[in-house]
Nucleic acid binder design. Structure first.
Lengths: 131, 131
DNA sequence: TTGCATATACGAAGACTTTCGTATATACTT
DNA sequence: AAGTATATACGAAAGTCTTCGTATATGCAA
């Protein structure tokens, strides 16, 4: 359980989210998406991605003609786990239950999702019994 | 659903956590707790709390003799809701289900907690049916 | 009331994040 | 091959967060 790897900032998560959803992309592709909802220059996105690649190791890139194609090295699952763990520690006193209730409380989950969560918990309980 | 209020930083959350758990406290009391696990100067804690009070409105304070007694204005519940909402947006594509599974998956929730969560979901489903 | 212990006030440095202007490189078109 | 469009590289400014040194205020004890 390494607690040492750097956590992506929110701007970085925005970029990672696009890479996770769309797969390997150019700076241009990512910037076009980001700039739909945020007024920011192309070189800003570029710089962020360069830092994420060179300094932080979140991304990797391959040259293709004159452009670079970036891919996420940090997986969605790992990033999520790190962020959830940190949030549990800092804001929920370590109680996953409290966090779960906050997350569900806003009632934006479909009946199907609620059912799946219950099944997931059933499975957890079963696993525990078999230890 | 205002998305404008500032989110506390992690250092600030550390202070808020103590105020939430222990109630109104002096800088000294808070710093004594923080410094058990973190090597940081007294004036650093003081400064953070001053900023949280004067610039961000997270805290309020009352003079008592020569010291100030600080209280949290930002409630635990509001802060948690804001952080969860933001995490959902930035890292989980808005899916509460995914977040819940991450939160439960890696951790050791007690059987009792798991039971309570299921009951909570049952209640949510019941509420929904009665709409 | 003088001095000591302790509190707050203030200012600024250092680190990190975000931003962008400008320079340079590269491919494609004509 | 020269020109244009577009990409990356680089450096630095601006903003925020964290840190702490130093100055100043205040209450209490001798």
């Amino acid at each position: 359980m390494q607690r040492k790897d750097k956590k992506p900032t929110e701007s970085e998560l925005e970029i990672l989210r696009i890479l996770w959803d769309n797969g390997p992309s150019t700076v241009r592709e990512i910037h076009d998406i980001i700039s739909k909802t945020k007024d920011v220059g192309y070189t800003t996105t570029l710089k962020l991605m360069q830092i994420m690649t060179e300094k932080k190791g979140f991304l990797t890139r391959a040259k293709s003609g004159k452009t670079h194609i970036y891919s996420a090295l940090l997986t969605e699952s790992k990033a999520q786990q790190g962020l959830v763990d940190r949030l549990l520690d800092t804001a929920f006193d370590g109680s996953a239950m409290k966090l779960v209730m906050k997350a569900l409380g806003n009632r934006n989950s479909s009946p199907d999702e609620l059912k799946k969560i219950k099944e997931f918990i059933d499975q957890l309980e079963k696993d525990r019994d078999n230890d």
